[in-house]
């Protein structure tokens, strides 16, 4: 028995040291040296004030901003969460119908508009930073109006959305998407330069 238990204890302790302390600390050290921005959460700052992370979505309610996806946790990351409603859930059905109607009404869209699926369904993390290019384009008029843009500025806004579309990575992986926080920051910057 002793010949089994003792090596079990020793080996567990040695491996704890190697894979539980040395390995993560080494990774942290290298990460902090080589990729300090990413390793620390890809924080985004405006005039020296940190306003969030590029990868963590935020809740935008003002008409002056592009809106993020619905979130089961209202973009409060402590902790992350999803709705976990199944496809035959009554609650999900009424949520989806409300979101669709609201998106059309608040963006002054024609009633038959096909609202992109990600704008009527909540994400898995509750922190999805992205929406589809279509979802961003459907919000342009509302944002332009709320900011009192003239025709020329509206065109600039359209170009801005266009330039914020991220293509599938390496042209092959994932979906085309728009990072909502980065887009809204760019829109704010556009306003500032106007004044």
């Amino acid at each position: 028995m002793k010949t089994t238990i003792l090596p079990a204890i020793y080996l567990t302790l040695v491996m704890t040291l190697l894979t539980g302390l040395l390995y993560p600390l080494a990774m942290t050290g290298i990460a902090q040296l080589v990729f300090p921005k990413h390793a620390n959460g890809s924080l985004v700052a405006v005039d020296g004030r940190v306003v969030g992370s590029e990868f963590i979505g935020q809740d935008f309610r003002s008409n002056k901003y592009f809106w993020s996806r619905p979130s089961a946790i209202l973009y409060d990351p402590i902790p992350s969460g999803a709705s976990d409603f199944g496809p035959t859930s009554d609650t999900l059905k009424s949520l989806v119908e409300d979101r669709k109607a609201n998106f059309i009404r608040l963006n002054h869209l024609p009633s038959h508009t096909a609202v992109p699926a990600e704008m009527i369904y909540a994400s898995g993390s509750g922190l999805d930073p992205d929406i589809s290019p279509e979802a961003a384009e459907l919000q342009i008029d509302r944002v332009a109006k709320a900011r009192g843009f003239n025709a020329e500025e509206r065109q600039k806004l359209i170009d801005l959305v266009e330039s914020h579309i991220e293509s599938p990575e390496l042209g092959l992986l994932g979906e085309p998407r728009v990072n909502v926080l980065l887009l809204n920051l760019a829109v704010d910057a556009m306003n500032v330069s106007r004044k």
Binding site: P24, H38, A39, N40, G41, V51, G52
Partner: peptide
Amino acid sequence: VGEGTVQTLSNYRNVQTLGGQEQVIPVGP
């Protein structure tokens, strides 16, 4: 990490979002 996964021992970060809410950004190894 090169793509954006966090790897740090520092504490979570409190920020005020663009929309004016408080948000705590969790990080870690």
